[in-house]
Computed example of a mutant assay.
Amino acid sequence: MSKTTRATLALQQAGVSFTVHSYDYDPNAERIGLQAAEALSADPSSVLKTLMVLVDNKPACVILPSDQEVNLKKLASALGGKAAQMMKPADAERMTGYHVGGISPFGQKKRVATVLEQSAFEHRQVFINGGQRGLQVKLDPRAAAEVLGAKVAGVV
């Protein structure tokens, strides 16, 4: 497995300090983020999942703890919209250039509005997908928010 992806390159170019962690990805896991947390021996609230959504039919990205579910009404409100829905997996792959299970908010093909769940800041460092299945980057959530230009809000 290559540890260099568009996500890790984007972080390097932005001068962000991070470490790369690989694990055995289980494509049959019921909840991919929780499987990653278990494989990394990490607190599930510190392993963040990246979801692609549509807010008022515009693409957006939300990053939240793997043990939480996004509240679509709160998400829409955080981005000044009326309604939000999950993006279809094929559309998410096309838009980001990543495969489902390996979607990173970093280095996506097209930059979209991004929301980072505020509870991520309860951790000094968090894991976020590194751009391929079985690859996570560990970094300060403040650095992640800054490099992504993410809005920080409560969306769970």
Score class of each variant (00 low, 15 high):
residue 123 H to V: 01
residue 124 R to V: 08
residue 103 I to Q: 09
residue 52 M to V: 13
residue 41 S to Y: 03
residue 92 A to Q: 08
residue 19 T to Y: 01
residue 7 A to Y: 03
residue 10 A to M: 01
residue 81 G to K: 06
residue 5 T to A: 14
residue 121 F to D: 04
residue 59 P to F: 10
residue 119 S to G: 05
residue 99 H to F: 09
residue 95 M to R: 14
residue 128 I to L: 12
residue 24 D to P: 02
residue 15 G to S: 15
residue 113 A to L: 15
residue 60 A to V: 11
residue 55 V to R: 05
residue 61 C to I: 14
residue 103 I to C: 03
residue 41 S to R: 09
residue 105 P to R: 11
residue 156 V to C: 00
residue 141 P to V: 04
residue 30 E to L: 07
residue 92 A to R: 09
residue 70 V to I: 14
residue 58 K to I: 04
residue 130 G to E: 03
residue 72 L to F: 09
residue 119 S to C: 02
residue 124 R to Y: 00
residue 82 K to Q: 14
residue 101 G to H: 07
residue 108 Q to T: 12
residue 88 K to S: 13
residue 122 E to K: 01
residue 54 L to R: 14
residue 140 D to E: 10
residue 82 K to L: 09
residue 7 A to V: 11
residue 123 H to K: 06
residue 149 G to H: 00
residue 140 D to K: 02
residue 82 K to S: 15
residue 137 V to R: 00
residue 35 Q to D: 11
residue 121 F to A: 00
residue 47 V to N: 13
residue 20 V to C: 13
residue 3 K to T: 13
residue 84 A to V: 06
residue 75 L to P: 03
residue 109 K to G: 04
residue 71 N to E: 08
residue 101 G to R: 05
residue 49 K to G: 13
residue 80 G to M: 07
residue 147 V to R: 07
residue 92 A to N: 08
residue 107 G to Y: 02
residue 50 T to Y: 08
residue 144 A to R: 00
residue 37 A to I: 12
residue 16 V to I: 14
residue 147 V to L: 10
residue 62 V to T: 14
residue 6 R to S: 13
residue 65 P to F: 09
